[in-house]
Design a protein around this nucleic acid. Structure first.
Length: 938
DNA sequence: CTAGGGTTAG
């Protein structure tokens, strides 16, 4: 606002030229519109009226645009009345305003009633149709447009792009080139965006080459779009190079590069960039805040949000929704509520992003009712709102409600299905997970990596190897077998099902491993009795990766130590948790250590650890301690502990009564049981299930369908070899396996929580990260991309020095040769030699000399496919100049690099030829050619 | 000096 008034003060000062005076006013009006400063705009209008220039045509048009933008119909009407006659410009303004308001048909009516139209009228309407997905009407007009210029071509190209018609937009681009219209920077931005969205590296390089050829190399927008292109295709180094070499950068460049550091996992560096940015807009703020949120740094996100408010920047909907997301990560309902109130005050209640975040917030904070209230107020619900509401219900156990809602979704997205799947998964209704999954497949919806991971997680929890292998096959068919999330789920599934060999196999083959994958493997090894291997893997991880141990890995490590009796080593790890790994042990770590000590007979030490806990011990820790007492006959401790537990949870009573029972003190057993009854403590029911012929049979211990061994055996007759029966009860983890046809019970010590399942938690985190992240992430993209699409090889032809980059692929060689041929034909230069990029520096000189020795008097050095780090710009011309020093009589030319996409090849060739013919004409004076008309003279 | 096309976050 300050700058606006500064400009105003300029206006107050006498300005010599009238044109300058008008110009200054117009620019301020433009700013008012852009920054949505309605009051300032109106004040200025009054002032302009007073000094008598408000009816100046150019001023009046700006005023009109301003009031149209603010939707002040009374003012608009007044202006139109004062304006003498509807000229073409006013008409065009009205057309584009109506497009902005969504009244495309009205815009068309205005267009039709115009006595004559110009290129602006046509373009406004063509792009208007495209904005609302009316592609056919737009193309109909486009083909009849008598004024086809760059802008209308670009409008059509980018409009098609926004409608997801990438290939069509490229074809349109080709037609444009064919028709002889040269692309400008905006066109090139669209083509780069098309390449980005099609994940087509070669196409992007071609666009890049063309940009350089046409002299848009230093255009900020083109470079910005190229940065985004490089980032989305995983070429982080390329993105950084472009950024660094940019002569001028704007907020967008900075915000894009901030994102690069986030992609690299370096949030600190990203923050440094953020702090260093010369200019920030609400997008930069929201980028940083949302990235903090995404990566789980919720507190930082909130702090930054606060800082932004303190800096007087009004948050846009994106910031608000990120902040709310951060709060729901932190489960901070109350600050969330106050933001909600604020949003209501701001009148931003109809933003789908904000609303979805609010639904998530209320959902995760256990208020599905409030979530529903938000949901019901949304007038333009999109599928994300529906999905959030479904998750809100299922995360609160209201699965019927979520199912009901799910059935009502007008158009289900993959996210809708995934919400259902993760909902059932989170509520441990694994049979339902499969049910939904199967329905999904039947409906024709292809699962994504998130679905597959969740379903594998269900397999893992059911220890269902058969189903798991089946899903593994599906994952393979879908091409997900390299996906880090799917692989991690596979590692976990195989480990949980006891198939440690396959688990290890998947893990070893993973192209990339993260914290969660290591957690799954380390945990899997530990739980399957491979304690030593588990510890080895941990050490290897510490040595060879940058992964810092998390609390779950440490839990697994403690578990492993406990299981191979490495009590002292385990204690060492435990004691170094805070000092070395900076992780505060939680109750589960304590349980593990208590268990470890109690098991090895160090019962009193275990008791000490228990009493030193800062947090509330888990029931299973008491259990472990008591079991230790039982095993080692520490009745005194047992009693002391037992009394402490009397007020505690149900499991405590049971364990206590078990302790008494095991030492034959039946009176105390009865007393404990009586106390339980009296206090209404109920041991929650366990559940067993068996999977026979792909069908799950469930048994509950307390509802009369108690597992009947005869019934089970009867079932097993059908399928005795492949079946496996499992049982997990909340307090005793009991596994029943069919061994040589006989069911036998394998009791695993400890309860559900005491069973220490870090991976399970690990996976709930995994599911979360999917729900907030686009599953088609960089990693996936990188896999799609395959091998680097480098450049071309060397053709050892006489004449032109071609400097290229990258691999020596055959097809690229062909392209190079074609290019060389074209060059020769166009320029008539003799061909002498080509040099490979890796050898370029030393060999340019040699190649140059060789050209001259073979009689060349004119030499072209043309880098092919160079990375946009301006190697060619910086090194090649100077190297060439260096080489040329020895031959003052020889003229030379360095051209910009070229890239060629098969689709664009022919037409781009033509275009480039056009550029080159110009270049060639100036060859004798040119050192660096930046394209048509942009040759820098020697 | 007035009207039409684009790039950053979710």
């Amino acid at each position: 606002m300050g700058s606006i008034f500064k400009s105003l003060s300029v206006i107050k000062n006498p300005i010599k030229s009238f044109v300058g005076f008008i110009e200054a006013n117009i620019s301020v009006l433009k700013q008012c519109t852009k920054q949505r400063l309605i009051t300032e705009g109106q004040v200025l209008h009054g002032h302009l009226y007073k000094i008598g220039i408000s009816s100046h045509r150019h001023v009046a048009v700006k005023l009109l645009i301003m009031y149209l933008d603010f939707r002040k119909s009374a003012e608009v009407d007044q202006l139109l009345k004062d304006y003498d006659g509807f000229d073409m410009i006013v008409h065009n303004c009205l057309i584009s305003a109506n497009v902005d308001w969504g009244n495309v048909d009205e815009a068309r009516r205005l267009f039709d009633e115009m006595p004559e139209r110009n290129e602006v009228s046509w373009t406004a309407l063509i792009s208007g149709y495209l904005k609302y997905g009316r592609v056919d009407e737009s193309m109909w007009l486009f083909q009849r447009n008598p004024f086809q210029n760059v802008i209308s071509w670009t409008a059509a190209i980018s409009g098609l792009l926004s409608n997801g018609m990438h290939l069509n937009s490229i074809h349109l681009f080709l037609e444009m080139l064919k028709s002889g219209v040269m692309p400008n920077n905006v066109t090139l931005v669209s083509i780069v965006r098309a390449s980005t969205e099609m994940v087509d590296f070669t196409m992007g390089l071609t666009a890049l080459s063309l940009s350089i050829k046409l002299g848009y190399e230093d255009d900020v927008s083109v470079c910005n779009s190229l940065i985004t292109f490089s980032l989305r295709l995983g070429k982080l180094e390329m993105a950084r190079l472009i950024f660094e070499k940019m002569g001028k950068r704007d907020v967008i460049s900075w915000t894009a590069i901030l994102d690069m550091y986030v992609e690299m996992g370096d949030l600190e560096e990203a923050r440094r960039v953020f702090d260093e940015m010369p200019e920030r807009n609400e997008v930069s703020w929201s980028a940083m805040i949302s990235r903090y949120t995404q990566k789980g740094y919720s507190t930082q996100a909130i702090n930054l949000f606060r800082q932004m408010i303190e800096n007087g920047i009004s948050p846009n909907s994106s910031c608000l929704s990120s902040a709310i997301n951060a709060l729901s990560n932190l489960k901070s309902l109350h600050p969330g509520k106050s933001i909600h109130a604020h949003i209501t005050k701001l009148g931003m209640t109809n933003d789908v992003f904000v609303n979805s975040s609010l639904i998530d917030l209320y959902g995760t904070c256990g208020n599905p009712k409030d979530a529903r209230q938000v949901f019901d107020t949304i007038t333009n619900k999109n599928v994300v709102c529906w999905n959030s509401m479904i998750s809100a219900y299922s995360s609160n156990g209201q699965l019927e409600e979520s199912k009901k809602l799910f059935d009502q979704i007008p158009t289900k997205s993959i996210g809708s299905w995934n919400s259902m799947v993760t909902g059932y998964l989170g509520n441990e209704q694994y049979d339902k997970v499969f049910e939904v999954f199967n329905t999904m497949l039947l409906s024709g919806q292809t699962p994504d990596v998130s679905t597959i991971s969740s379903v594998l997680c269900a397999c893992a929890n059911l220890t269902s190897l058969h189903k798991g292998k089946n899903i593994h096959g599906k994952a393979f068919k879908l091409g997900f077998h390299h996906d880090i999330f799917v692989c991690t789920s596979l590692v976990d599934m195989y480990a949980k099902a006891g198939d440690i060999e396959n688990s290890k196999r998947v893990f070893t083959k993973m192209p990339e491993k993260n914290e969660v994958s290591y957690t799954a493997m380390i945990q899997g090894l530990a739980e399957n009795g491979y304690a030593k291997e588990s510890l080895d893997l941990f050490e290897e991880m510490e040595k060879n990766s940058h992964i810092k141990p998390n609390e779950l890995i440490l839990l697994a490590i403690l578990f492993a130590c406990s299981h191979c009796g490495l009590v002292n080593k385990g204690l060492d790890y435990f004691n170094s948790m805070e000092t070395v790994y900076n992780i505060k042990p939680n109750e589960r770590h304590y349980t593990c250590v208590v268990d470890m000590l109690a098991r090895s007979g160090r019962v009193s030490q275990a008791e000490e650890v228990m009493s030193s806990m800062a947090c509330e011990p888990e029931a299973s820790a008491w259990g472990a301690l008591l079991s230790g007492c039982r095993t080692y006959g520490e009745e005194e401790i047992a009693e002391r502990v037992g009394l402490k537990m009397m007020e505690k949870k149900a499991g405590g009573y049971v364990l206590l009564s078990n302790v008494y029972a095991s030492s034959g003190r039946w009176g105390e057993v009865m007393e404990t049981r009586r106390l339980m009854k009296e206090k209404g403590v109920k041991k929650s029911g366990g559940c067993s299930w068996i999977e026979v012929r792909n069908k799950l049979h469930l048994f509950y211990s307390q509802d009369g369908t108690h597992m009947d061994f005869y019934f089970v055996l009867d079932l097993l007759k059908f399928d005795i070899v492949s079946s496996k029966m499992n049982s997990v009860s909340p307090s005793m983890n009991m596994k029943i396996v069919i061994n040589e046809g006989k069911p036998c019970i394998m009791s695993i010590k400890g309860g559900k929580r005491g069973n220490l399942r870090p991976t399970k938690l690990g996976f709930s985190r995994l599911c979360y990260s999917y729900s907030t992240q686009n599953p088609m992430n960089l990693r996936t993209l990188r896999c799609c991309l395959g091998k680097e699409n480098g450049g071309v090889g060397i053709g050892n032809r006489d004449g032109v020095i071609i400097v290229d980059h990258g691999s020596r692929r055959k097809e690229s060689n062909l392209m190079l040769n074609e290019f060389v041929a074209m060059f020769v034909e166009k320029t008539g230069y003799p061909i002498v030699e080509a040099a490979h990029m890796e050898l370029a520096k030393p060999s340019i000189k040699d190649a140059f000399h060789s050209c001259v020795e073979k009689g060349a008097t004119r030499v072209i050095v043309s880098p092919f496919f160079l990375f946009p780090g301006r190697h060619w710009h910086q090194d090649i011309p100077s190297l060439t100049a260096e080489a040329a020093k020895d031959y003052p009589g020889v003229s030379y030319l360095v051209t910009a690099p070229l890239g060629s996409h098969p689709l664009l090849m022919d037409v781009v060739d033509e275009t480039i030829k056009r550029c080159l013919s110009h270049v060639a004409g100036h060859a004798d004076e040119c050192v660096v050619c930046k394209g048509t008309g942009k040759c820098r003279l020697h």
